[in-house]
Amino acid sequence: MAPQRTDTDTDTAPGGDDPRESVPSGPFPAQEQPRQPGLTDDMTPAPDHGERTWVGRGRLIGRRALITGGDSGIGRAIAIAYAREGADIAIAYQPEEIDDANETRRLVEAEGRVFAAFPVDLTSEEETVDLVRAAREALGGIDILIPNAAYQRQRDGIESLEVEEIERVFRTNLVSPLVLAREAVRDMPEGGSIIVSTSIQASDPSPGLIDYAMTKAALVAYTQALAQELAERGIRVNAVAPGPIWTPLIPATGFPADKVSHFGEDTPLGRAGQPAELAGAYVYLASDESTYVTGAVLPVTGGRPF
């Protein structure tokens, strides 16, 4: 779902923007960041989070959202859109991402919304439990939970896998969403919503991302199972499956330079997506426009089949 256009955009063709060219995406300059978390300021070009394009329509007025990985990338795009739709926001970030978190704060508070940010190690059960409690206190409750933070690294083959790295991927991508949901649903009201970030890797896995792809496939089962459990409590659980999206995760994954330069060109639309193009999916799944949708996975993949 593309970002909302402003009233000043007058160059749109009668049928709308050409999705192959509606946002600038690649080829990208060769670049690499030495470790995760990747940082927005070190990316060329800067990702589009919808800062200048998302126009709110009041679809989330009064809602309170906790977004992990909300400092940058898809998480920042969600935070901007939710704030402009009327929601208050809490995010979790890693301490190294403080500059990105502060920029998200600036953008959310510019909309007059409550904002709270917490540096958290999501591989720690104790810190994850404390995060939910702190976010609930800061916002006065949690209506929307978005387990969005993820960790991935390019692997050179099955023989190179280290258990320590596997455990970091699994604890970040799988264990933390379980703990987050366990803690959040205890006080989540009827009409609440959990929206999981899975991936095209769940159905079209890359060998070099084997452990990451495994977690994203498991999150589909998480979504479908939890949706059935929580339906009787009036809480919906859905997922968004992004395709190749230009976020700090990409140059910080350890991909070969050529893969980064041509990132996303293998999609039917021929380009990578921007974080802003994901925001509409998360707004829809949190809003009353999707009250009969639960247990669903919404692909935003540039045409790659999920």
Rank of each mutant, 00 (worst) to 15 (best):
R153Q: 11
T68I: 09
E162D: 14
T294N: 11
A13G: 02
T40Y: 11
T6I: 06
A90P: 08
A241Y: 02
P205G: 00
I91H: 06
I144P: 14
D288W: 04
L145Y: 06
P29N: 11
A138E: 11
P19N: 05
E190A: 15
S193R: 14
P305M: 08
S206E: 15
E137M: 05
T172G: 03
W246E: 11
Y82W: 15
R304P: 01
V220P: 00
D100P: 02
R57E: 12
G112V: 04
V169W: 02
D156N: 14
P305V: 02
G303C: 03
E109W: 10
D156L: 13
D130A: 15
L174N: 11
Y212T: 04
S72E: 09
A227V: 11
E190Y: 05
G280C: 08
L139S: 07
A81K: 08
L209E: 09
P3R: 01
D42V: 03
A117M: 14
W246F: 04
A116P: 07
S261R: 15
G234Y: 11
I91E: 14
D17N: 10
R271D: 08
V196E: 06
P251E: 03
V169K: 11
L139P: 12
R59C: 00
A116C: 01
I91C: 06
T294K: 12
V293G: 04
Q31V: 07
R76C: 00
R5H: 03
G70R: 09
A77I: 09
L209K: 09
D130M: 10
I158N: 09
I210E: 03
I89F: 02
L122T: 02
T44E: 14
E21Q: 10
A257D: 15
G270H: 05
I89D: 05
F115N: 04
A225F: 06
L219E: 12
A134H: 12
E183C: 13
R20K: 15
L298K: 01
D18H: 04
A225W: 12
P29M: 13
G234T: 07
P244K: 05
P299H: 09
Q154E: 12
D156A: 14
V196C: 09
W54N: 05
F115Q: 13
A225L: 04
Q274G: 08
E51G: 02
P119S: 08
V169S: 13
V297P: 02
S199P: 08
D11C: 01
A138W: 03
V179A: 00
E232T: 15
R63F: 03
S206T: 10
I80D: 10
D7W: 00
E126D: 14
A101H: 10
V220D: 05
E51F: 03
T253A: 15
E125Q: 12
A138V: 05
R168A: 10
A276I: 11
E229L: 07
G192Q: 06
G157C: 02
E162M: 09
L226Y: 12
R136N: 13
D9F: 05
Q152C: 05
D71A: 15
G270A: 01
G273F: 07
D11I: 00
R113A: 09
Q36A: 13
D11N: 12
H262M: 08
